[in-house]
Design a protein around this nucleic acid. Sequence first.
DNA 1: AGCATTGTTTCACA
DNA 2: TTGTGAAACAATGC
Length: 251
Amino acid sequence: MPELPEVEHARVFVEEHGLGRAIAAAVDRDTYVCRPHAPGEIDDALRGRTLTSAHRRGKTMWFQTDGGDGPVLGLHLGMAGRMVADVPEAPNRWDRFALEFEDGGRLALRDKRRLGRAVLNPDLCDLGPDAAEIGRDAFRRRVGRGAAPLKARLMDQSVIAGVGNLLADETLWQARLSPLRPAGDLSDAELDGLRKTLRLCTRRAIRKGGVHTGEVIVDRGRGQRCPRCKVEMQRAVVGGRTTFFCPAEQT
DNA sequence: AGCATTGTTTCACA
DNA sequence: TTGTGAAACAATGC
């Protein structure tokens, strides 16, 4: 599920359900999700504190405690994570990390695939600017270089942060650009158009509730045709991920 | 059984 | 040293 739009929803969710509640305990038993922390480390750091602000860059979220004076909690939803709060069925076997509040409530990272992440004081140095916020010049400079295929460049979180497999396909289809083009070959005009399209697709996905609401994303699969020109969509592996694009329009 | 998966990290290689 | 691509990671669903 989670690409930038889903993570933004998760951030708002924590903002609404997590801020201002005194933390009684952090459930940090999953040593894979909480790596490199040992069990109890995150609990020790957060117990008795309160989340005071919720932030996001790309797909990474972080939360300040005690007005910025306390440790920072970083969360990543991985491939299949989502945030749940105070639900009747909780706790759940797929809750990989959780905050238990003194009011009896609970906020959890529920993640079947277990590729999510909870860490103290996350390092954001290797993250590029947020894909929905990056300016024209920085976008030209960071995206418009290198020999890697354009789609791989868009999904490189150190170049820009937040674009995943589906958002990349949707954006490139909307922008009529081939995912296979070497990123460094794009003109400034093409890069500017791509940036605007990316911002549009991202914000629309946030508004509509997720990246799966995209126009070309809806029916990924065999024999799917381009919604615009009706040519059969082509399947390929780009940047290590399954990719669908219109061979007629995306050049 | 086998394969794919909306993400990230690590490793090999040029 | 840097850029690129493939495999590994964990677990589930088709």
